[in-house]
Structures are given as structure tokens and as C-alpha cells.
Amino acid sequence: MTTSNNPIRDEIERSTARSRRLRQRDLALGITTPIVLLILWQAASSTNLIDAKIFTPPSKIFATALTLIHNGILTHDLLITSLRLLIGFILGGAVGVGVGILLGIFRTLRAAFSPLFAALYAVPQIAVLPLLLVIFGIGETPKILTVAAVSFFVLEINAMAGVRSIDPQLLEAGSAYGAKGRRLFWHVLLPGSLPAIFTGLRVGVALALVVVTATEFVAANSGLGYLVWNSWQLFEPNAMYVGLITIALVGVILTGIVELISRRLMPWRGRNTRD
């Protein structure tokens, strides 16, 4: 009985070690799987088990990427797509957040505009592109506006939902403790709707990428979408893969940035929910 403390401590240590081991294993698996798949792809296409003309081996795709970076095509396309995406997203998103919050606060505005916006949101924004092309000609404006439109709707809807979803008790507590009018907005309404706004940003940035790619398919002679589309027409699967992978990377990076900002701005979230 004198060692009764040790078996318990041993068990606690074993359990901690086990959970750490499991986490490390999960991480390793997450990295290994894509690498293994790439190796399989490489092996299958260089032994002509799959059609190497369509499924070019990763090594060749990588070589093409280097060439495209070297001659400036990829970097140029990346830059131009990013600009269209960011300008459209920031413009449309900012207006969307503003309008959404206003609609969330003021019942009259909500009654007047919310059904209209909901109906417009149901129209795929990309379908408006031809109309915008008629109005503005084939410049940058229609592409940026299409991206802005989709960002606007996603953020408008989420910001409005965010304001509406704030626990009424919090608003009461806020005003009971002296936060009225503008101060209620800054100290309760805005922080309270931040989670929903960030949900909107995450969804919006992904949709904006889809839309910018689609507009570049049909109405551009530059950008990553154009690179992919043009590679199809010239039958250059290598370049197409490079374009696709770059688009995917843009998506990952933008989502990551949104995630990072969201953690900075909302330190109270996701603390206790990790397990």
C-alpha cells in the first residue's frame, strides 16, 4: 500500500503520452498521404499505367511551373488574379458588412431590402457577367464587379444574421450598464456579430476565388483562370496543372489569412473547444 500513489501517476503519464503520440501520428498521416499519392501518380504515369499525356507526372508539372515562373507568366497571372480578387472582395465585402449590419439593426430597412437581396443572391452572380460586359465593355470593371457582387451578398447576409443572432440579454445587459446608441454598437453589437461576419469572410473568400476564376475563363486574356482555360485550348495539361495548383494555393493562403485575423480579433473563441 505504500506505493499506492505511483500506479496512479504512472497511469496519468501513460495517458498523456498516449494522447501526444496519437496527435503526432495524425499529423504524420496528414502529411504522408498526399506525398504517397504523388509518388504513386509519378510511378503510374512514368510507367504509362495511366495516360501520361493527360496525367503528366508531377516531376514534369514541377518543371513547367519553374519555367512559367522563370519567364514571368505565372507570376504575372498570379498578380493579376490576386488584384482582381482582393479589390473585388474588399470592396464588395466592406459594403456587404456595412449594409448587413444596418439591415440587422433597423427593422424598416430590413423589411424593405432583405427580401430583395435574398432574391438577388439566389441568382448566380457569374450569370450577371455578360450584362456587365455589355455595360462596361471587356475591361477590368466587369470582372471586379462580379467578384464584388458575390462578396457583397455573402457578407451582407452573414453580417445581418450576426446582428440578429446576438443574445437579446446581452443587448439588455449592455444598455442596462450604460451602453446606448453608438457605444452599444461598438461594445456589444459589433463584437457580438464578429463570429458570423468571419463565417461570411471564410465563405466569401472561397466563392470570390471561384468567381474570379470563372470570369477569367470567359472574359480575360490574363490571370490564373485564363492560364487554365488557355492550356485546355492549346492542350498543355502541364500548364493547366500549374494553374490549378496555384489557384488552390491562393485559396489556402487567403483562407489562412482570414483564419489568422479571426483568431487575433476573437481570442475568446475556440479556446475550450479544441478537443
Binding site: D167, Q169, L170, E172, A173, G174, A176, Y177, H187, V188, P191, G192, L194, M266, W268
Partner: peptide, 15 residues
């Protein structure tokens, strides 16, 4: 001056 203690506490989660 009036202060409240609410049923579900109504604490500000962001503070």
C-alpha cells in the same frame, strides 16, 4: 443607479 444580475448571466463572451 440600477444594476442587473441576469438569469443566464448575460456576460460578454468577448471580454
Amino acid at each position: 443607479r440600477i444594476a442587473f444580475v441576469f438569469q443566464d448571466h448575460a456576460l460578454f463572451p468577448w471580454l
